[in-house]
Simulated assay, not measured.
Amino acid sequence: MTNPCRQHFQRVTAAQQAAATPQNQPMADSSAYTMQMAQLHQHYQQLRGIQSTQAKEELKAKLLPDYAPYIDGVLTSGQGAQDEVVTTIMLWRFDAGDYEGGLQIAAYVLAHGLEMSDNFARKTPCLIAEVVAEAALKAARAGNAFDIGVVAEADRLTAAHDMPDEVRAKVKLAIGLLAAGMVDEKEPKPDDLQCLEVAQHFIPRAIELHERCGGKKALERVEKLIKKHAEQKPS
């Protein structure tokens, strides 16, 4: 079979077998799942031979297309069977910097209550929220770009799920810092006030959840800029 034909076959097979497996039951008896797990095991061996975190992330980015047909099939027709391939590829997408792709899988994972493998101590919603929030916080504190919509979506997807307050605080703080980071004091923009108001909403919430989250100085800057904006507004 040509590569597109093989991909189509993998996608259709995964969809059919995922649709036939009830929620919370393992996909272990599925031939499509068995093949993907065998492939995953091979790739795990490759990753274990690499010490550099950056190099591991780069390799994961190269390997992800091998799983795309299977993931597409499961997300299209799956009934929520327990699936280590799905949860692993979700995290690999995050690791590779594909946060939108990771959250696409996360929506399915959370909707059906899929659990992480025993290698992870944190519950699935907590893990999703923290991985996204920490990446966003790292970018925000370094002055680098990060899509605030990604963090907002992670917040929305995990809002109804229980997790430590410290983790929820990271999500709120990330949204607040990213919003505040959109404001350049030297080059005012029409939507600055809206960004500052978003920051003024989320940063105090983060501090409320975890007082030592690191948002107090950022909040001082936001309140200072809001006051400055009000003083400059024509009467």
Rank of each mutant, 00 (worst) to 15 (best):
I148H: 01
R93V: 02
Y70D: 03
Y108M: 03
D95R: 03
G78L: 03
T53Q: 06
Y108K: 01
E166P: 04
G113I: 02
P125S: 04
R93P: 00
I128L: 02
A68M: 06
K62E: 14
I175T: 06
K60L: 11
E211M: 13
T76W: 14
M90K: 00
A111C: 06
V131K: 14
Q17D: 04
K228H: 07
Q17W: 02
T124M: 15
L110W: 05
N24F: 06
C126G: 03
I148T: 05
Q39Y: 02
Q7S: 08
A230R: 15
A133K: 04
F120V: 15
Q200R: 14
D72K: 09
K233G: 10
M35P: 08
H210E: 14
T21R: 01
V132I: 12
L225S: 09
Q10E: 15
Q104H: 10
Q17M: 09
G102A: 02
F202P: 01
L193Y: 10
R168K: 14
A179C: 03
E100K: 13
L59N: 01
Y70M: 10
F120L: 04
A140S: 10
H41A: 11
P69V: 10
A139E: 07
I148Q: 00
M182S: 15
D191Y: 09
S117P: 06
T87F: 00
E185P: 12
R205W: 00
P4W: 04
V85E: 04
H8D: 14
D191K: 12
V150T: 09
A81V: 02
N119K: 15
C126Y: 09
M116L: 13
A199S: 07
R141C: 08
R205G: 07
K138C: 07
Q7R: 10
G78I: 00
A38C: 02
V167F: 04
R48P: 12
E231Y: 11
S31V: 12
G143P: 00
L157Q: 09
C195Y: 15
G176P: 02
S77W: 05
A106G: 00
D147S: 10
G49V: 03
E166M: 14
R221C: 09
L177I: 04
M1D: 13
P234N: 15
E100R: 13
D191E: 14
R156Q: 11
A152S: 06
L47Q: 00
K138P: 01
Q39E: 07
A32R: 00
L173T: 08
A136E: 01
M182G: 14
G149C: 10
V183M: 03
Q39V: 02
E115Y: 07
K224I: 06
P4I: 11
R212I: 02
Q194N: 10
A121T: 14
G113M: 00
S117N: 11
G49D: 11
R221E: 13
M35L: 14
R93G: 03
N3I: 15
E208T: 11
E115R: 07
V86K: 01
A136S: 09
A230W: 14
M37G: 09
K60V: 12
P65H: 13
A174G: 13
E223F: 00
L219P: 11
P26F: 15
K56N: 07
A19E: 12
P125A: 06
